[in-house]
Design a binder for these strands. Structure first.
Lengths: 134, 134
DNA sequence: AGAATGTTAACGAAAAGTGTTTAAGTTACC
DNA sequence: GGTAACTTAAACACTTTTCGTTAACATTCT
């Protein structure tokens, strides 16, 4: 049984970075070049991105596509829209308006500009009323 | 930018499995042996396990060690214990007793026998009062 | 017992991932 | 301009993963 995606090297770098060290400082400590620290850190972030994407796939596997939030929509209109769509297919959404918006902003922070949606967001829902965004 | 951890083959098998197909049925469709379907499915599950573990590491990265739940402890004593420890370091735990126990059992189901803890569990907490178990 | 389902071990070939170095490129700040 | 922090790309040796086969083994249902 193997560990997670991150190599010992990558974990090491992430820990030092979390403490606020520069790549050069870390390079000195672990006896390698700063370029190498950079690539190690970069591939660590890449691995984290992939881990997230993998679990996203799992979620959408037992979830059905609920609706699409089109670009330009106001953030405050999103929750009512999702509630209506979910009601149409007879599923009760698990989250109240506040949690829903928080969850949405957390899942796709880059897709917002102030109160407006920048790019379309696909919304998935499962039988339990859990929501996933892709 | 690469995809998630799962190969197309693995996703394919997982989708068919979700639909309730047997390994033999899938093997016939994708033109390979059932043994191979089995190994593909198995490594898919392994990849999913690793994705989860990777994100767990991320959580503990900005969390500090709160306390250790020793083997033999009664499940009903865990929540009060954690609350007390968190209070000692001035952090309010995000979960009520019920949610806390659910979260604990979900994270480490193999470490319980009826109402008792089998092996020691490390508890981590972050500034927001989120808990992680390792 | 027979049949279907699932698992495991051993092995090979092709593909992908890892750690490194080197070298050239930003970006930002004094 | 110069320097420190950081990024990027190419190339290398090395290790691991993946997909596939075959054959044996365990489980469960009829």
């Amino acid at each position: 049984m193997k560990d997670g995606l991150l190599t010992d090297r990558q974990k090491e770098v992430l820990r030092f970075r979390k403490q606020g060290m520069t790549q050069q400082q870390i390079a000195d400590i672990i006896h390698t070049s700063k370029a190498n620290v950079c690539t190690i850190e970069k591939s660590a972030m890449e691995n984290i991105r992939r881990a997230k994407e993998t679990l996203e796939f799992l979620y959408t596997l037992d979830a059905t596509h609920l609706c699409t939030i089109e670009a330009g929509m106001d953030l405050l209109d999103v929750a009512p829209f999702i509630y209506r769509e979910a009601e149409n297919i007879g599923i009760k959404v698990k989250y109240d308006t506040i949690s829903l918006i928080n969850k949405l902003r957390e899942a796709t922070p880059e897709r917002f500009r102030a109160r407006h949606v920048r790019d379309a967001i696909e919304v998935y829902i499962n039988d339990e009323g859990d929501l996933y965004f892709g």
